[in-house]
Nucleic acid binder design. Structure first.
Lengths: 192, 192
DNA sequence: CGCGACGTTGATTTGCCTCAACGATTGTGG
DNA sequence: CCACAATCGTTGAGGCAAATCAACGTCGCG
């Protein structure tokens, strides 16, 4: 049940048996069916979420009602509305399932216990956040420097598996371009 | 000499005297004159850098030779080419000074010593990275969802002091729009 | 079967870029 | 101390990449 998250963590830190079972005692296993919500705007993000199987989508809705995808999260990814999680105030992000999805969750208060009782977890999440920092910065640079076509090609090169599983209009939303533009890019790629 | 960085750190963790002096023993104080480089593409980013006074700019150059600003760093900010820093391989980012700037630097090997001898620093950098994560995500959402004018207004609202100190064409580069567009936005704002 | 979700295609519009010229300011070397 | 260059911002004209709007085909599913 919890092998995948233990393996994810042991990529960066080593846990002994006592630490492992303490950690596991803090976890909750949940299933979210396709189109169901894990988090809605206005709610407080109380958990960090690890995806065991399936595919989640983290997005916001602007004042005109348009959705903008902040990130996708598939197997082995962590996701939350971090701002809401940190401040424990109502957030403005949604998380829903694009596929039937199994997740493991840990509550904020339990993460804080973990930091105190097993300080190695500070290191683990620091490393996770470092990697996210690098990825975010690359995404920002793509967004401000590439054409729509270049961004799309960079996306499918970086996340070939997501490109298979995520509907194209969701990819468009993630990249900040329109579904029509992606459709035309793909057509022009076919010709070559 | 090191009061500012100690204060920056004590916002998130408490250090005793021994820890403080050990930390200080790892630091190097440097001055960079305007237009000089702290880091060039192709070099390995060997330090984390904290800005005491002044203003730095972190950017990349694309294949057409155009610069794209990844971030600015003024007083109380941390900056590095994190990817190069983590992997200790040559990076593709530049860091130069937009003003005469005083910085404090700590080398990667010394940060690692610090993590081991004063694990609280894992917490400190974790918190720093959490805040960066939230800021990055907001910037991404701005970039994919707002018009040029909305992005510019959001920038000057979020960073009014930067808007005073950074040349407009650098702000344009940070936002992924042209200097001419910013100029026209400002003119249209004057009329109202 | 019928509906909703998804992708495609064409016609048209538009926000922003490109290119070019110019003024103001700052800096610098003779 | 001045001449000149470099930097920075502004403005206008024209063009283009991508958005918008609209219609249609297909697929999967309740």
């Amino acid at each position: 049940m919890f092998e995948s998250i233990i393996q994810n963590i042991s990529r960066h830190i080593q846990l002994n048996e006592a630490e492992t079972s303490f950690f596991i005692s803090l976890l909750k296993y949940r299933t979210i069916r396709k189109r169901q919500f894990l988090l809605k705007s206005g709610e407080i993000s109380r958990c960090e979420t690890f995806v065991v199987k399936g595919l989640l989508r983290n997005y916001t809705v602007d004042k005109s009602g348009y959705e903008h995808v902040a990130m996708f999260a598939m197997e082995d990814w962590w996701v939350s509305d971090l701002y809401s999680f940190l401040t424990q105030t109502p957030g403005n992000q949604f998380i829903d399932a694009l596929e039937d999805t199994d997740v493991i969750q840990i509550e904020k208060s339990d993460i804080e216990r973990l930091y105190i009782e097993v300080p190695k977890f500070e290191r683990f999440f620091r490393i996770l956040l470092q990697n996210a920092y690098v990825a975010h910065q690359q995404r920002i640079l793509s967004s401000i420097s590439l054409t729509a076509e270049e961004q799309y090609l960079a996306f499918i090169r970086k996340y070939p598996s997501l490109e298979q599983r995520v509907p194209q209009h969701q990819v468009a939303s993630y990249l900040g371009i329109t579904p029509e533009t992606i459709s035309r890019i793909r057509r022009s790629m076919m010709k070559v």
